[in-house]
Design a protein around this nucleic acid. Structure first.
Lengths: 341, 341
DNA sequence: GTGAAAGCGCTAACAT
DNA sequence: ATGTTAGCGCTTTCAC
């Protein structure tokens, strides 16, 4: 049995709408795009609107793009959907794109097949690109920039990308360390991010600076770590615990690493926060649901996504722009930090 | 100071490539699309390839879409990027799309502005749509299906959507409950998902069936819960703990709820697994990093994403297709389950 | 072995 | 207050 009239859904076009409404196609177009300069009788407009509704007409996106040279879509490249910090960036970017009636195409960008993402931009499928991944080969980055379309890096510096949206990573570290110092800690360790990472370096700097400001001397023996994963965090915690004078408190550079560090401490019989305080950077909902609930420094992840999209609307890609989102950086005290005993 | 020749990045077109290579545009097109029926001298082809490279030519996606009526893009709608189970679905879908040289546009679909997602499909911006969100209003679903383009639901049934990719939720529950029974548990509780949820219902059914198979009688007093969030899981655990005869083991319908349940148990001084065993559905990397590490039933999330995309390639949207992905459903025993004492 | 020509569906400047 | 026209950049059938 076949439902009649449902086969071959040959799409409805502007011409068909115009025919039904007994007007010229250009009038329909101008009604749809609410052309200011269009003078039209209410009655005629009503006929057009009725025809659009009756035929369930939707403009063909490809034809619109071809004609206007705009796709109404932006791209966002991240390294991994499973990492919760990118979820926040995506949310901020998506909402802002939506507010501007644009779509967001988010993709995983690895070293793998970078030409795919160059093509996205060069073919005009997206009008601009947000780079939140540090795993894009330099020549791919160069090719993206060479398209002349806006390319903005988010949450990191990328060589060759002139415009960037950053958080104040140094300040986040300082806020965290100051909290530990105010609790009375003196031997404060740091579990840092990967060697090549821009944010890891800035957070390490902030950690050192905060110590010095408080009159403490940074001690290389209290720094460990080399990754933003739970495994790396666990390894680093074990390393710190094995050292002769273990720290009484630790700043972990990233929440995923902090989860691993917490587990490693617990396995080693080290009580948090009784034996050791732990504070980390990035507040995600999960942090409140761990045991103990993690004290964190909230970073403006969604805000960076938002600012990134806004920057893409700014077509002038020649200028070097560095925007640091500050407002949302704040300490969130939970149960993983306490005075030393 | 202005770098000359870099202003106005007016895109390179097929015609310019053809001119440079001294051939007709159609030849360039056929070279790019590796037209089987094209007979061409090696020397001519080389000129074309060289011209493409020299000009960094990339075909205009809008023109291609308009001409071929194909966008090379699929859509995926999820309720929330921050929920880790969707990250797995996205990964499976994205990889499969990539293997077929297609792009994946993933968006958050809420009750909010559903017409946006109808438009995505109706305008031809995406060729087909995967629905992994249960928060799309029925009339929006109806409008999507009415476009005649392929629409497939993933990990759930959606009224009005004929084709679906499901996991075997009942079996997952049975595997989990059987594990608890084999450990020696008799009073086994269930923290269930939201009332309206298709997966929640199937998991509840599986739980009951497994009990009966083992000769145990399901007891409504051992079932609580009404959501897939940590908060809902914590509430439900508190409720179960308050009941006169508390269970010695619990199957939690979802990993996010399990995290909350674990926290609530700990706060109440109930030791897991000593006082109570906890097993949950969905294995995500985090499960291994909780304390205690969670025993889970792995579900084929990435596989469902993959099968969803494959289903979209199948244009015949009239047929009812239900595909259940089974292979990957397996028990992963960690530290949250143990014999009763 | 290569070229010519039509047209996908739309918009916007210009006519009437 | 509405219609005419040209063309965005590409693919594909057909002609030479």
């Amino acid at each position: 049995m076949t439902t009649p009239g449902r086969r071959k859904p040959s799409r409805v076009t502007l011409v068909e709408v115009a025919t039904l409404a007994r007007v010229d196609p250009s009038v329909v177009s101008r009604v749809i795009n609410s052309d200011e300069r269009l003078v039209i009788k209410d009655e005629t407009r009503a006929r057009v609107v009725a025809a659009i509704k009756q035929l369930r007409y939707h403009p063909n996106a490809a034809a619109q793009s071809l004609r206007t040279a705009q796709s109404g879509t932006f791209g966002l490249l991240i390294p991994d959907f499973a990492n919760p910090i990118y979820a926040e960036i995506i949310k901020g970017a998506e909402q802002t794109a939506t507010e501007h009636d644009a779509l967001l195409l988010t993709g995983t960008a690895l070293e793998d097949r970078p030409e795919r993402y160059v093509r996205m931009l060069a073919s005009g499928r997206v009008e601009g690109l947000l780079l939140a991944s540090d795993r894009i080969p330099p020549d791919a980055v160069e090719a993206m920039v060479a398209t002349g379309r806006p390319v903005v890096s988010v949450n990191q510096r990328i060589p060759g990308v002139q415009r960037m949206i950053l958080a104040d990573d140094e300040r986040a570290s300082r806020i965290a360390v100051r909290h530990l110092i105010e609790l009375g800690h003196q031997r404060i360790g740091h579990i840092r991010g990967p060697a090549g990472s821009d944010t890891a370096r800035r957070r390490l700097n902030g950690y050192r600076r905060a110590l010095r400001t408080a009159g403490l001397t940074p001690d290389a023996a209290l720094v460990a770590g080399n990754g933003y994963t739970s495994e790396a965090g666990a390894d680093a915690m074990r390393e710190l615990l094995a050292r002769p004078e273990r720290p009484t408190a630790v700043l972990v550079a990233n929440v995923a690493a902090a989860i691993g560090a917490l587990t490693a401490a617990r396995v080693a019989g080290v009580h948090v926060p009784g034996d050791m305080s732990v504070v980390t950077i990035h507040d995600i909902p999960l942090a409140a649901n761990l045991v103990p609930a993690l004290t964190t420094v909230r970073m403006p992840l969604a805000e960076m996504g938002r600012e990134g999209i806004l920057a893409l609307f700014d077509e002038d890609a020649d200028e070097v722009v560095k925007k640091v989102v500050r407002d949302a950086t704040e300490l969130i005290v939970r149960d993983s930090t306490a005075p030393p005993r």
